[in-house]
Amino acid sequence: MTLWIQILLVIGLVLTAVYLVRATPSASHQAVRRILVILAVLVGVVAVIWPGLLSAIAHALGVGRGADLLLYGLVVVVLIESVSNYKRSVTQARTTSALARELALTEARLEDAIADVAALKKSSPSGKGK
């Protein structure tokens, strides 16, 4: 009965890919992440207190040992984490770009304004008589 774990892992991986391609960061994602963190802590505590339970779940899913199940889960979690990190870095890069652009444009506008004033000053004394 390795089928169950196979289905679970494939679903996990496909969802990771969908997350990579589709999702944009939002408040609900943050909520989901926080719920998952709390769940992970609870599951961890249970697994530490009753080590046999992990093995029992592993057997039920068609995995040989509890440690193997833990490893499979870890791989999926690491993948989701790196996708999430990648997306966060893209968002940050865009923010940085927007900020740097505003800075460059502000400097350019300032230079233009200064040049305009200088041109005005230059033309006004001699320009009066014309």
Partner: peptide, 8 residues
């Protein structure tokens, strides 16, 4: 116009 850092 000068970007303060390389952006692409």
């Amino acid at each position: 116009i000068t970007h303060p850092i390389n952006l692409g």
